[in-house]
Design a protein around this nucleic acid. Structure first.
Lengths: 214, 214, 214, 214
DNA sequence: CATGAATGAGTTTTCATTCAT
DNA sequence: CATGAATGAAAACTCATTCAT
């Protein structure tokens, strides 16, 4: 006689189900093409409940970005041990990064593709996370320079550019690895490590490539 | 004093105006959020005329992608002289690339961000252009290895990964340079050149960075 | 005294209201000239609700055709008793037909005029109903021939043509009766019955077919 | 050096070309679905010229109706000789009618299907033609009654109904004959003549009306 | 006369969002 | 809490119609 339908679940659990559904939908369809109807159905709840808990499509998207950004930084952070030498830290961080993005392609799509193209507000959320990672890499570069017994005389903007390039390369490689069958997180990390570390190494030793006169 | 509404223009001119408006709108709002109304208004024409000339939102977007992709590859191509050594070619190409993307941020947004996430058809248009560039870079790496008197014995996937990382880093740096006031195309190119060339140089000399045992 | 906006009705009721409005609008304006706006307003609901329940203009039109076709065949079917002689069956059928079309002029317009000229799919829906009626009439003609102790040696195409003419005459008379004030369903049925059963020739000779007492 | 393009044709000729194109387009697509673009292109002229000569879509449609109605009545009129007996006149008229509608299916579609469902004004144009034909048939019935030495004591409305039924049957049979391969105008006329003149009753008794030798 | 250029007004359709129960 | 009922606002797209040349 009793319908088996509604398992009364605590709010926190329901919210996670909704976010799971939202991340998946936003990641695959894109922000605009994702409909609240689809998200609610995928989450197994009614639409008004989504609004009750998450308030609006914007807020829901923001919540997705925050959760996924937190999960990604947490994955990288917990993959790195700060008592290690700089190259080992970079390697561990890259490995954790590529592993996490490979395991959460929808979340990565939300962060890398969707969030950046739908208004300043969303982009800012991601930018915050990105800056955290760039700061981490920047510091690694400085430490590496010190470890190489070099004066940290690299100009600040130069270091920032290098970190930016490294993170950008990582992001592109993550997309490439996700899309290319047979490329593992480990291989992607090794490729980038080769590219980056050896290049930086040259720099550290004082032989930067010199651009020709304009 | 200035004519507010310039009327009765030849079709070719109007089409370019429409494409200008469309690139700007698509680049800033994204494909889905861009409305044909807004594009038409920005172009200074009525919606029906946009449809008469460009046929549909899809076709309009495709036309934007084609025009911008052509302009970008043309800019890079005409900036490079193939009778130069590999490092010079890469430098010239990067400079042309960063210069063009800095001068056409909306076009770059269309190619880099928007076109990739709205259906296979659009992504394919961009992928064709990107592959052209990746192939160019890949070949440069091989030539550089030869110029360095090294056997071109780098495994193919390794080279592909390196080229991908380089192009990805360039793409990210372009966005960074566009978003960071005071960073010139020349500086972005120099940063990446340092990063890439020195790193590859190390590789060429046979001392790649070795990942630790898992 | 009358509620102007009756709200929150169960779906089944609302759907019938929408179909009522749609039949009326399609019947009077035609399929293409009928706008979903007008239908929604006439039904007293918003357009999105019409789409939520009926899906599209096509589907809405199909639903109208089905409902009206079903209602008409049901009216004729329940007006005829198959244990009666052929002439009585024809009379009863015609009476039911003219009565129903007189009471539902818009539905009749949808079936007779609109549905036939807007694509194979719609026409097929009506053709199915029409063929059912033509088959019924065809069979009546054959039975009548047998009852008159005649060999049923009329060639098949001849009978098909006769049935077609009879049904066509009925359809036209229905429109005529609807458009001519003072013509009752009974009169229309009697006219056609005379025409069909006795023939003009018989009429001339003074032996018209006489309808049974009501 | 001179373009062969524009043959200066007299206005009357151009107008007929436009009407030809319009009848064909209206007949096949329907009034609303027919676009002025398509008509102009089919006529081989520019759209503004259509407006210059025919003024508007409404007026163009009205002109089509008038031309086709005139052609049809003229065909019937010239097929009948009023010095013949009534049955011969009816036969000749039916034959002319079925022949003309078979040879001008688009025109017949305009009159029979399209004009009736797009507003009172158009329907009235057709109604005028139809009444002319109904009047002709009505008179034939009266004459036939007289020829049969019967008092013309049929009530007026009865006669009107009979004529209406006869015309309606003819219209339906025309559509049926157009849609059924292998049915000739002559066969359609014979079927209706049998039906109308002899009646089903007569048929049953074995004395069908016989068409005169061609 | 003839036409390429141009548009106002409307069409179907979708979606985020809100109540009443 | 949970949900079926309901909508305002806007999107893509079309078409009859008009000028300037």
């Amino acid at each position: 006689m009793g319908a088996v339908k509604t398992k009364r679940m605590p709010r926190a659990v329901r919210e996670q189900q909704m976010l799971d559904a939202a991340v998946r939908t936003f990641g695959r369809r894109g922000y605009m093409a994702a409909s609240m109807d689809e998200i609610a159905e995928l989450a197994g709840v009614s639409k008004p409940l989504v609004y009750l808990y998450l308030n609006s499509k914007d807020d829901l998207f923001t919540a997705c970005i925050r959760r996924e950004a937190h999960a990604l930084t947490e994955a990288v952070r917990s993959g790195v041990r700060t008592d290690q030498p700089a190259d080992r830290q970079l390697w561990d961080g890259l490995l954790a990064f590529f592993t996490h993005t490979a395991e959460n392609p929808d979340g990565w799509s939300v962060l890398h593709l969707q969030a950046r193209i739908h208004g300043e507000a969303f982009a800012a959320e991601v930018a915050a996370m990105r800056e955290e990672i760039v700061a981490f890499v920047t510091q690694l570069i400085v430490v590496a320079a010190r470890e190489a017994h070099r004066d940290p005389d690299l100009p600040e903007r130069e270091v920032a550019g290098l970190a930016e390039a490294l993170v950008g390369a990582a992001e592109s490689l993550a997309a490439w690895a996700n899309a290319t069958p047979g490329v593992t997180a480990r291989q992607a990390a090794a490729t980038l490590m080769n590219f980056a570390w050896a290049g930086l190494g040259e720099l550290m030793e004082g032989r930067p490539w010199a651009p020709p006169a304009p």
